[in-house]
Each structure stands twice: as C-alpha cells, then as structure tokens.
Amino acid sequence: NEGIVGSNQQERREVGFRQYMLEHHPACRIWELNLHAKRDSEDAQMLDDFFRTHPTVKNGITFNSKAYVIGEYLQRHQKTDFNLMGYDLLKRNVDCLKAGSIFFLIAQQPTLQGFDGIKTLCDYLILKKEIARENFMPIDLLTKENIEYYYNK
C-alpha cells in the first residue's frame, strides 16, 4: 500500500485551541465558519451573515494561513472592533496586520524548523543518537508594532 503521510496542522491547532478553551474558559462560546478563500462573494456573504447574526462577537482566529480573507473583509467593511488572529507571514496577512485588520500573526519560524529537522535527521542517521519523539519549537506573536523588527532580524 502506498500513501502520503502528513500531519494536519490546522486540525491539530484547532483541537488544541478548543481543549485549552474548554479547560480554562468553559463559558466561552465558539462559532465556526468554513470559508473557501477562493470564492470571495460566498465568503463575504457568510461573513455578512455571521456579523449580522452575532454582533457582539469581537474576537476570531484562523488555524491556517488564510487570515487575510477575514482581514481584507474587515478592511472593506471598515470594521475596526474585531480582533483577528492568524498564522503565517504571507504578504496578504502581513498587509492586513500592518493595516490593523489582523491583531496578531503567529510566525512559526520555518527556517529554524527546517534546520532542526535536518539536524535531528543527521543526529539519528549519522550519529546514531536517540531522538525525542516530539520536538517543541518556539513561535513568535507578531503585531503591527513589531513586524518590522521581525523582518530585520
């Protein structure tokens, strides 16, 4: 049997987030929207409907790199009372972060992850070291105030 082995990071992020919220903020109500990211009119309609139905919701998170879908919607609708958090430093996400429609971006340091992955592989294959099954990596929380510093590291 052949197959592709991979991790579904988005799903794992969401599961971890929901577990954390259940343990630490059990009264918090979570709504889920499944945006398409390539069907602007459908996404806009879903967001219109959501914000009309839930006018008191002021915080949101995406578990993938498509936070800009919501960020650009917020800009088009001049909605400034919503705090959005997302992942990855795509140009469109960074543009939204600088404009203020994304409040935080989580950067996962892909260069460091790649370096540590290759180092661990070499340690295992060449040096015959026992390696840890899980390797935790640092993340950076980026805001419009610190994004320029991050790029200048």
Rank of each mutant, 00 (worst) to 15 (best):
Leu125Gln: 12
Ala107Asn: 10
Leu97Asn: 01
Met21His: 10
Ser7Leu: 14
Val15Pro: 10
Ala67Glu: 02
Ala99Pro: 00
Lys79Asp: 06
Asp48Lys: 06
Glu130Cys: 13
Pro55Cys: 10
Glu42Cys: 10
His24Met: 08
Leu121Ala: 14
Asn93Cys: 00
Gln9Ala: 12
Leu127Lys: 09
Leu121Tyr: 14
Lys128Arg: 12
Gly86Leu: 01
Glu32Gln: 10
Val94Glu: 01
Val69Pro: 03
Val69Glu: 04
Arg12Met: 01
Gly3Arg: 13
Leu89Thr: 09
Asp49Cys: 10
Thr53Ser: 15
Glu72Trp: 01
Ala44Val: 10
Leu90Met: 04
Val94Gly: 02
Ile70Trp: 01
Asn34Glu: 06
Ile70Lys: 02
Tyr149His: 12
Leu33Gly: 00
Tyr73Val: 08
Thr120Phe: 04
Phe104Gly: 04
Asn83Thr: 03
Ile102Trp: 02
Ile70Ser: 01
Leu97Lys: 03
Gly86Pro: 00
Arg76His: 07
Asn8Leu: 15
Ile118Leu: 11
Thr56Cys: 15
Pro110Leu: 10
Glu11Gly: 00
Arg52Ala: 14
Leu127Gln: 09
His54Cys: 04
Phe103Thr: 03
Arg18Met: 02
Asp140Val: 09
Arg18Leu: 09
Lys38Leu: 14
Asn64Met: 05
Lys153Trp: 10
Ser7Arg: 13
Tyr150Met: 15
Phe104Trp: 05
Gly6Ser: 15
Leu35His: 13
Leu33Cys: 00
His36Asn: 14
Gln75Ile: 09
Phe50Pro: 08
Thr111Glu: 03
Arg12Thr: 02
Glu14Pro: 04
Glu32Asp: 08
Ile4Val: 13
Gln75Arg: 11
Gly60Asn: 11
Lys119Gly: 05
Val94Gln: 05
Arg52Lys: 13
Met46Phe: 11
Asp49Trp: 11
Arg76Pro: 08
Arg39Trp: 12
Asp48Thr: 04
Asp123Thr: 02
Lys38Ile: 14
Gly16Asn: 06
Leu22Ala: 09
Gln108Ser: 06
Leu35Gln: 10
Phe82Pro: 02
Lys129Thr: 02
Pro26Gly: 04
Asn8Cys: 15
His25Asp: 09
Gln78Phe: 04
